[in-house]
Amino acid sequence: MTDLSRLQVVPVRDVWKHEAYDFTQWMLQNADVLADVVGMELELTAAEHPVGGFSLDLIGREVGTGNVVIVENQLGPTDHGHLGQIMTYAGGTDPQTIVWCAPSFRDEHRAALDWLNERTDENTRFFGVEIAAVQIDDSRPAPLFRLVAQPNEWTKQVHAETSATPSTERELIYLEFWTELLRRIRDRHPDWTRSVKGAKGSWITMPFGSSIAWYSLVFTRNGPRVELYFGSSDAEENRLGFERIAACRDQIDTDFGAPVSYDPLPTKKACRIHVDRAEGGDVMDLDTHEELMDWFISTMERFRAATQRARVASESVIS
């Protein structure tokens, strides 16, 4: 008979003794755990962020869009006080994503998050995340997070379609195209992105491994494009990051198997390295969606491998 062990729950305060000093600081360094459970690429940038005379546990952004993300933590059951704090912090930071983390949620507080998701606009999202820790025998504890409240995307879409500024046909087709493309990408390359929902715009993003740059899959005026976009708020930082990767252009072109375009965009703050589809393509041509998705994935496979090798090489030079 196979000898199996059991997964045991560890009290959260045995793992994180203090909310601010232990759990919040751990979350700041391990944003990927939260990103996995909420299904988006996010970067937590600061703890104890001042909001008026108060301190927000964590603030960050969604990679690629720059949308603000805030997180409020508890190491005990949810209470009215923290619900009020979340509203206060949201009013002072104008976030698109609000996350409340606690070991257990009262039914009333879960219902409150559901109500907020139903009543707010399509760009505002509230998540409730139950936090726990587990171990097997004497192993090190591991985090185990679970969603207990999340946006009802169908409801959000209905609100958008019936609002004063309804989505256009193109926006809805973009949303459908990108969402299906992300599903296929996660099936084939689950390490590329945590995002589960597409966008209504002409592009989606995925992480590169740097806070100043990210991959973008884009429909330009001339057709589909895969690019590495250096788009931080610091133009000089973007330029230096671009030059470090572009210094490996010969190797990138060789690894990719064809010439890649390098655009420093000297009159703009951003820079990009990209590959365009020679045959063009329009998201509005529904009959071509299959071949366009195949092109995005196959091109990204080669482009990502080439630029990731260049990133590693550039970082080894710096160190």
Score class of each variant (00 low, 15 high):
L147G: 04
T165I: 06
W178P: 07
F145T: 00
R183K: 14
L182M: 12
T162S: 06
R146L: 05
T168W: 11
N152A: 08
I136M: 10
A149Q: 01
A133F: 07
A149K: 00
R184I: 08
Q135K: 15
H159V: 00
E176C: 08
D137P: 01
E161Q: 12
E169V: 15
D138A: 09
L172F: 11
V148L: 01
A142H: 02
V134Q: 09
E171F: 06
L144N: 03
A133S: 07
E176V: 05
P143L: 04
V134S: 03
P151T: 01
R186L: 12
A133G: 00
W178A: 08
L175Y: 15
T162K: 03
E171P: 04
D187I: 10
I173N: 12
P166N: 06
D187M: 12
L144C: 02
S139R: 05
A164G: 09
L144A: 11
L147I: 08
S163W: 06
H159N: 13
H159A: 03
D137Q: 10
L144D: 01
T179L: 10
T155K: 06
E180A: 12
S139F: 03
E171D: 11
E161R: 13
E176W: 09
D187A: 15
A133W: 01
T168N: 09
V158R: 13
K156G: 02
P143C: 03
R188N: 11
A164M: 04
A133M: 02
R188A: 15
T162M: 09
E169Y: 13
W178K: 08
L182V: 11
L147T: 05
S167M: 14
D187V: 08
W154N: 05
R186H: 14
E169P: 01
P151S: 01
R140G: 04
R186Y: 11
P141M: 05
T165F: 10
L172G: 04
R188Q: 15
D138Y: 05
I173Y: 09
I185G: 10
P141Q: 04
T165V: 11
R186V: 08
T168V: 07
L175W: 11
L181F: 13
V158H: 02
E169N: 11
R146N: 10
R146D: 09
A164I: 00
R188H: 04
A164F: 05
A160K: 11
D137W: 00
I173D: 14
Q157Y: 10
W178V: 05
R183A: 15
K156A: 06
R186A: 14
I185K: 13
I136Q: 07
R188E: 15
R188S: 14
D137C: 00
P166M: 10
R146Y: 02
A164Y: 05
V148C: 11
D137A: 11
E153L: 10
V158N: 02
P143H: 03
R140W: 06
A133Y: 03
W154S: 02
Q135M: 05
S163G: 15
R146M: 07
L175A: 13
T162R: 07
Y174V: 07
Q157K: 12
R140P: 00
L175F: 15
T165L: 10
P143G: 04
L182K: 14
Y174G: 08
T168Q: 13
A149L: 02
D137R: 06
W154L: 10
T168S: 15
E180N: 10
R146T: 12
V134E: 13
T168E: 08
